[in-house]
Amino acid sequence: MKIIIGNKNYSSWSLRGWLAAKQSGLSFEEIVVPLFGENWEANKKGDDIQPSHGKVPLLWDDEIVVWDSLAMLEYLADKVGRDRFWPKEDAARGMARSMVAEMHSSYAALRSECPMNVRKRFDGFSPSEACKADILRILGLWAEARSRFGSGGPYLFGTFGAADIFFAPVVSRFISYQIPVPGFAAAYMQAVWEHDWMKAWIEASENEEWVIEQYETVS
């Protein structure tokens, strides 16, 4: 199995796909294709990325090609067992699915104003009203998940799973842009940031040489 991802410092969707692959417990080969590099357009047309029409992350499993991070997570969950990714309790699983779907499709202001940059710490960031609304919505969902279903551990639904995978880039954004959060959220973010897989991703991002200038300043 191969996972094709973009730069670890900048590619939030790649982080989700990569964490899903790690969560599956399956072995995989990792291929990094630098986003917007001098060979980006050529690489998008090459054998590595063509099946996804130039998108990362991408999963190849023998003859099976899966792109889009949520599709990858669901494919892997089908392959290894859904309980590895989703809570067993119906109510918790329903909420986790809803949170993941909302994360997948929403929060345009947060995405636009706070591109993921794992290495960077931005001073003086002032979110728009739309971005503030996204942040408050996310914090509210985190609070509800933790209070209702988080007693089994430090993550949203106790143990690390699909919801944490999908909100991991948000944790990175909140840290990079120094978003003020209440204590319960800070504790959750610390648990995610100190997860062994996240530490490996962070270390790799810090060792990358690529720089995308448009993601290095606050607009």
Results as ranks from 00 to 15, higher is better:
residue 163 A to Q: 11
residue 147 S to D: 14
residue 159 T to N: 04
residue 177 Y to K: 02
residue 128 S to E: 14
residue 194 E to L: 10
residue 193 W to I: 15
residue 137 R to T: 04
residue 168 A to L: 11
residue 192 V to A: 06
residue 147 S to Q: 11
residue 125 F to E: 03
residue 132 K to Q: 14
residue 141 L to E: 03
residue 177 Y to F: 11
residue 133 A to M: 06
residue 196 D to K: 10
residue 200 A to E: 15
residue 166 F to L: 09
residue 185 A to S: 01
residue 148 R to H: 15
residue 166 F to Y: 04
residue 152 G to Y: 05
residue 199 K to I: 15
residue 156 L to I: 06
residue 151 S to Q: 15
residue 131 C to D: 14
residue 174 F to N: 00
residue 130 A to D: 10
residue 145 A to C: 09
residue 150 G to N: 07
residue 141 L to N: 00
residue 145 A to Q: 08
residue 180 P to A: 05
residue 191 A to E: 08
residue 145 A to R: 05
residue 149 F to G: 03
residue 149 F to K: 01
residue 167 F to C: 08
residue 147 S to E: 09
residue 150 G to E: 11
residue 195 H to M: 10
residue 178 Q to I: 07
residue 163 A to T: 07
residue 128 S to W: 14
residue 177 Y to L: 08
residue 181 V to K: 01
residue 135 I to K: 02
residue 197 W to R: 12
residue 164 D to E: 12
residue 187 A to W: 02
residue 183 G to N: 07
residue 174 F to Q: 04
residue 125 F to S: 02
residue 192 V to R: 00
residue 193 W to D: 13
residue 158 G to T: 05
residue 187 A to Q: 05
residue 178 Q to W: 10
residue 188 Y to V: 06
residue 178 Q to N: 08
residue 137 R to E: 02
residue 146 R to I: 15
residue 164 D to I: 12
residue 189 M to L: 13
residue 154 P to K: 10
residue 172 S to G: 13
residue 195 H to N: 15
residue 138 I to P: 00
residue 144 E to K: 01
residue 151 S to N: 15
residue 132 K to R: 11
residue 144 E to L: 05
residue 170 V to D: 00
residue 177 Y to T: 12
residue 180 P to F: 05
residue 142 W to R: 00
residue 191 A to M: 10
residue 178 Q to M: 09
residue 134 D to P: 04
residue 144 E to A: 01
residue 156 L to N: 07
residue 162 A to R: 00
residue 193 W to N: 12
residue 124 G to T: 12
residue 181 V to G: 00
residue 187 A to H: 02
residue 165 I to F: 08
residue 127 P to T: 12
residue 160 F to S: 04
residue 139 L to S: 02
residue 141 L to S: 02
residue 167 F to P: 03
residue 172 S to V: 14
residue 164 D to L: 09
residue 148 R to Y: 15
residue 162 A to E: 06
residue 177 Y to N: 13
residue 126 S to M: 13
residue 173 R to S: 06
residue 195 H to I: 14
residue 168 A to D: 09
residue 132 K to G: 03
residue 131 C to S: 13
residue 197 W to N: 15
residue 200 A to L: 13
residue 174 F to A: 02
residue 189 M to F: 13
residue 153 G to R: 02
residue 186 A to K: 07
residue 176 S to F: 04
residue 173 R to Y: 08
residue 187 A to I: 11
residue 132 K to L: 11
residue 175 I to T: 11
residue 152 G to C: 13
residue 170 V to N: 01
residue 194 E to T: 14
residue 140 G to D: 01
residue 169 P to A: 05
residue 150 G to I: 06
residue 187 A to D: 11
residue 124 G to M: 13
residue 144 E to M: 03
residue 167 F to R: 00
residue 180 P to D: 07
residue 188 Y to M: 07
residue 166 F to W: 10
residue 122 F to R: 01
residue 199 K to M: 15
residue 169 P to S: 07
residue 147 S to W: 01
residue 185 A to G: 05
residue 154 P to C: 11
residue 125 F to D: 05
residue 122 F to K: 00
residue 124 G to L: 12
residue 137 R to H: 03
residue 156 L to Y: 04
residue 192 V to M: 09
residue 194 E to M: 08
residue 164 D to R: 04
residue 152 G to T: 14
residue 177 Y to R: 03
residue 183 G to F: 02
residue 184 F to V: 12
residue 141 L to P: 00
residue 134 D to N: 03
residue 154 P to S: 12
residue 199 K to H: 13
residue 133 A to S: 13
